[in-house]
Simulated assay, not measured.
Amino acid sequence: MARSRSAGGGAFAPPAEPSDLDARLADPDADPESAARTICLRLLTARARTRAELHQALAARGVPEQASTKVLDRLADVGLVDDHAFAGDYVSSRQRDRGLAVREISRQLRDKGVDETVITAAVSGIGPEAEAAAARQLVARKLRSMTRLAPEVKTRRLVGMLARKGYSPSMAFQVVRDAVGASGEDTGPDETAWLA
């Protein structure tokens, strides 16, 4: 393949040409199912996706609804599109790696088009104690970098961090109060002042 030298120096970049896929989609005689399959497989190569995400991508590329449905059904039949598996993996990684609360994970899955019953099943394995443990871990990690701050500032920032991760105000305040209080510091106003 011919490459052209960029104006910026020694880097090489391929010339800007429309992809084969773009040409096939623009061709009125093209097979829309073939194009839909190619789009989906390219997207799935990068990362797992929900059926709704793939459907949206196909619609954005102008794939007819009938071809889109047929291809997505086939991909589901062979296990390449599985919202149950996607949701399970998503819940596990977001809770373990990012410490997100069930409420925030559920919101993100809804945004990805996952059905509510699938979401409920996926998050059912995270109990209140697991959520509290994740919140305590997040606070302990963040608290190490806050040694010079006043207790009220620590409390406000930590409660805000947990709130952004989807924790309820009462759980966030309790976890932060316990962590900051364990270091012998006063957390400032009580919970009712924070929640007002």
Rank of each mutant, 00 (worst) to 15 (best):
A135L: 09
E33M: 12
Q95H: 15
D83K: 05
A182K: 06
L109P: 01
R61G: 02
A134M: 09
C40I: 05
I105W: 02
L158S: 08
R177Q: 11
F173P: 02
S168A: 15
K70R: 14
G184C: 04
T147Q: 14
L75V: 05
A196N: 09
G62H: 09
K112S: 09
G99D: 06
L75M: 05
L100C: 00
T187W: 06
A16F: 10
S145W: 09
A57K: 10
R61M: 09
G166Y: 10
R136F: 00
V159R: 14
R49S: 11
C40G: 07
S168N: 01
Q95P: 01
L158V: 09
L44G: 07
E53M: 12
R177W: 07
V175M: 02
I119N: 04
L109A: 00
E104P: 01
L195W: 04
R103P: 01
P189I: 05
V123E: 05
A16S: 12
R42T: 03
K70I: 01
V139A: 08
H55A: 15
R37D: 07
R144I: 09
S170E: 14
S6M: 13
R49C: 10
L80T: 03
R61F: 06
G166Q: 08
A179K: 00
A26G: 07
A135K: 08
R141V: 11
G184P: 02
V114A: 05
E17N: 05
S168G: 14
R141Q: 15
E185L: 15
A30E: 03
G10M: 07
D20E: 13
I119Y: 03
V71R: 09
E185F: 03
L158T: 07
E53T: 07
F86K: 02
I126T: 10
V91P: 07
E129R: 12
R5V: 10
G10W: 11
T69G: 05
R47Y: 07
T38G: 02
G8E: 15
V63D: 06
A163R: 15
E152R: 12
S106W: 01
A36R: 06
Q95G: 07
T38L: 10
A87S: 11
A135M: 07
R107H: 13
L75A: 00
T38F: 03
V71H: 07
V63H: 05
E185V: 06
